[in-house]
Design a protein around this nucleic acid. Structure first.
Length: 275
DNA sequence: ATCGGTATCCATC
DNA sequence: GATGGATACCGAT
């Protein structure tokens, strides 16, 4: 499940830059210099979908479909009693918030790099749980690391891949998503940011929400753009599923680690949820 | 379907 | 009190 991402990325990039021409599987395969059979098995192995149904997960139509009942999504999650310590996520995340004041003296954090279905991942943990998950692009680990350091300037980051390794498998292997032994996460941010990130944890896998719906959910329907800002500053990619937030039209709008990766996550999850 | 301009308004610094 | 968006909307192509 690891090194497939390079080819997947190529395919997604080809699809998005040629979407006007509705490319066929043959064309996509050719553009990625693989055979149709190879492309097929690549996608099957990576996310469980055929290239065609993966492609379908990336269309505006599909996004709009999922957004149709977005208003109920967050509230439904709330009603099922997921509001506090219980299941907040498909990954069974429990979280703890830490305000900027609480880490003013800095915090010891461990970091490590590990393969993931979306390229090489950077994991950052504290003794109280995982605090960050980012991605390496073009093999530039230093940049990925300083992106994290910039978020918590006073944190003392120490390489410790033994500590971070255990997280990776659990996070990206959906068959290990079990309620016992939940994944512990530390949300470090302002009060508003933490409330936004908590809302993100309520969006079920394979579902989508929009900036507006989250603002309304927080009883602050006009804070749409403020929500956008907070979503964009989410330090724990994938686990806090900011990739499930789209514009009201279904457009992707943005992603800190690149729109291609956002598309990859959406398609991958469609495979996991059985689309 | 896309593109560009603009109204709006909240959290941050 | 200034700033700046991972917005939303509208009108033109």
């Amino acid at each position: 499940m690891t090194s497939y991402y390079q080819k997947v990325k190529e395919a997604i990039e080809y699809i998005s830059s040629h979407k006007a021409e509705q490319p066929s599987v043959e064309q996509i395969a050719k553009a990625c210099s693989v055979t149709v059979v190879e492309l097929h098995s690549l996608f099957k192995n990576w996310c469980g979908l055929t290239p065609m149904s993966f492609l379908q997960a990336l269309t505006l139509d599909h996004a709009r479909d999922l957004l149709r009942h977005e208003a109920t999504i967050l509230d439904a999650a709330f009603e099922t009693g997921l509001s506090s310590a219980g299941r907040l996520h498909d990954l069974f995340v429990t979280h703890e918030a830490m305000s900027p004041g609480e880490y003013k003296n800095g915090l010891d954090m461990a970091y490590g790099f590990h393969e993931s279905p979306f390229g090489e991942a950077l994991i950052v943990t504290t003794s109280r749980g995982m605090a960050g998950l980012g991605f390496v692009d073009e093999g530039n680990r230093a940049e990925a690391l300083s992106d994290m350091q910039r978020r918590w300037p006073k944190a003392r980051l120490v390489l410790n891949e033994i500590q971070t390794k255990s997280y990776v498998e659990r996070i990206f292997n959906s068959s290990l998503w079990q309620p016992h032994n939940p994944l512990k996460v530390t949300l470090i941010g302002t009060d508003f940011q933490v409330r936004v990130w908590e809302s993100l944890l309520k969006i079920p896998v394979g579902q989508m929400s929009s900036y507006g719906a989250i603002a309304s959910h927080l009883n602050n329907p006009k804070a749409v753009r403020a929500v956008g800002g907070a979503v964009g500053r989410n330090p724990i990619s994938f686990v806090v599923p900011c990739h499930r937030v789209l514009g009201k039209s279904g457009a992707l709008t943005g992603y800190h680690w690149g729109l291609t990766r956002k598309q990859a996550m959406i398609g991958w999850e469609k495979g996991k949820v059985g689309g």
